[in-house]
Structure formats: structure tokens, C-alpha cells
């Protein structure tokens, strides 16, 4: 008996439509965020994260409507990331029905933004997304750095120091994505996840690299993650969320089944 580890499916949304090929045979419109979110909720998702990848900021308003529609029908926690740059962006998403927002680039450009956001809205709704890449030479102690622009631009900031700083600034949760692993399907960067989880007091979500259900269990058992986030393995219906939870429970992990 105790707190369950969480599985969080992540949906990329471009101008109001789910992209990166969600494929379900039993869904009428696989591009409709509401339908996809409902499906994940039925399968037992513990939370859902929407990543707004809309390029033009003029079209961001669309994401507000997406959140409103999903929040009217899906009663589990919802997180929105992508393009969150101002306190007004956060207020609009929370009012639309999001429970948390994920701040990424804006925190790197101006760390004080995280402090202002947590003071205004409370730590419980501020997730800081950390995109990290391993930068040490072979044979050296592992070291990771924060990257921006989808992993293309180094910042020189040490990922572990950054994680501690963001928690000091009030972040209620950290979403840690390995830019080395993202899209590879070879599993999380477990040493990275573990190093950050051990360094901070708040929950850590592991992300980047999931290719099978063992990877999810490893994220918790070896990476010490409190939650695991994945996209493609659920979108292509390779595995259902329920199946993933059963596999994790069989590995001795406390889950909500």
C-alpha cells in the first residue's frame, strides 16, 4: 500500500491536431486530441501531457481550446508544455483546465521566470522540463548539459546543477528528457534520470527513448523515476497503457491498476 508510480502518455499537438501519427483502429479521428485523450484515460493513463509544437505563436490560442475541450471530459491531471513563456501563458492554460504547465526554454533564458511562476501559481502546477545531453569524453565521469532548440544548442549549464537550481526556485516536478535517447527506442538514459532524482526532493518524470515495456520498469527501478513518460509506444498501439501497468506491477512496482 502506498503511492503508485505514474505512466504519462505524451501527445504532440500542432495547431490543434495530434501529430506524429497516433494510430488506433478504433478511433474515428486519430488527430482529435479529445478522442485520443479519452482513449488513454479509459486505458488507465495516470496523467496526460500535451506538448504544443505549433510554430506560430498566433496559433497558440488553439491549444487553449484543446485543453478546454479535453478538461471537460477527461478527469485526470493534464499538463501542457511548449511555448510557455509568460505568466499570462500559464494563467490561460490553468484557467482552460490544465493542472500543470511545463516550462522549458523560457527557464533557460530567464531562470527567475520559474520563481515568479511558482510564487504566483504554486509549485504544484509548475513542471520544469530539462533537455539534457551527455557531454563527457569517453572514460570520464558522466556529465550532462542542458541543450535547447530540440537538442541542437548547448548552453554550458550542468544538468544536475540546473535541476537543483530549478527546485530551489520552486519547481514542483522535473520532466527529464535525454536528447541522446529521444526517438531511439533503446531505453531511458538511466544514469541521468537517477542522478537527477537522487539530487532533488521533488518527483522526477523520465522521458526519451522508450521502446518497450521493460524500459518503463527500468526507469523506475534503476532510474528512480517517480513517473515515466512515453509517446510512440502507446500511439502506435504497440502496447496499451493497461498492459504497460501490468508489466510494471509484475516487476514489483506499485501501480494504479
Amino acid at each position: 500500500m502506498g503511492l503508485a508510480k505514474r505512466i504519462i502518455p505524451c501527445l504532440d499537438v500542432d495547431n490543434g491536431r495530434v501529430v506524429k501519427g497516433v494510430q488506433f483502429v478504433d478511433i474515428r479521428d486519430a488527430g482529435d486530441p479529445v478522442e485520443v485523450a479519452r482513449r488513454y484515460d479509459r486505458e488507465g493513463a495516470d496523467e496526460i501531457t500535451f506538448l504544443d509544437i505549433t510554430a506560430s505563436s498566433d496559433d497558440r490560442e488553439t491549444m487553449v481550446h484543446v485543453v478546454e475541450e479535453v478538461a471537460a471530459e477527461v478527469f485526470i491531471p493534464l499538463t501542457v508544455g511548449g511555448g510557455i513563456r509568460t505568466l499570462e501563458d500559464i494563467r490561460r492554460m490553468l484557467n482552460a483546465g490544465a493542472d500543470k504547465v511545463a516550462i522549458n526554454t523560457a527557464a533557460v533564458f530567464r531562470p527567475e521566470f520559474v520563481r515568479e511562476a511558482t510564487e504566483r501559481f504554486g509549485s504544484q502546477c509548475i513542471v520544469v522540463a530539462i533537455d539534457a545531453k551527455q557531454v563527457n569524453e569517453k572514460g570520464e565521469e558522466p556529465r550532462w548539459e542542458i541543450f535547447t532548440h530540440g537538442g541542437r544548442k548547448p548552453t554550458g549549464i550542468d544538468a544536475i546543477d540546473w535541476a537543483r537550481k530549478m527546485v530551489d526556485y520552486g519547481a514542483g516536478e522535473l520532466l527529464v528528457t535525454s536528447m541522446d535517447r529521444d526517438g531511439t527506442k533503446i531505453g531511458f538514459d538511466l544514469p541521468l534520470t537517477r542522478a537527477i532524482s537522487d539530487a532533488v526532493s521533488v518527483p522526477v518524470i523520465a522521458s526519451g527513448g522508450v521502446g518497450n515495456l521493460e524500459h518503463l520498469a527500468e526507469g523506475v527501478l534503476e532510474g528512480a523515476a517517480d513517473a515515466v513518460l512515453a509517446a510512440s509506444i502507446f500511439h502506435f498501439a504497440e502496447y496499451s497503457i493497461h498492459e504497460a501497468k501490468e508489466r510494471m506491477a509484475a516487476a514489483g512496482i506499485e501501480m494504479r491498476l
Partner: peptide
Amino acid sequence: GDDLTDSVSGLRLKIPHMGWNQIH
């Protein structure tokens, strides 16, 4: 408390208590 540990595993527990837990 900042030194909260799991009574079974002895692992340090995260604060906030965030996620799905049972109500007896």
C-alpha cells in the same frame, strides 16, 4: 518533513506527495 522515508524500502520519499495513492 524532508527526511521522509518509505517504511518498507527505506528509500527517501519525494515531497510533494504527488500522484495516485490509496484511501482506506
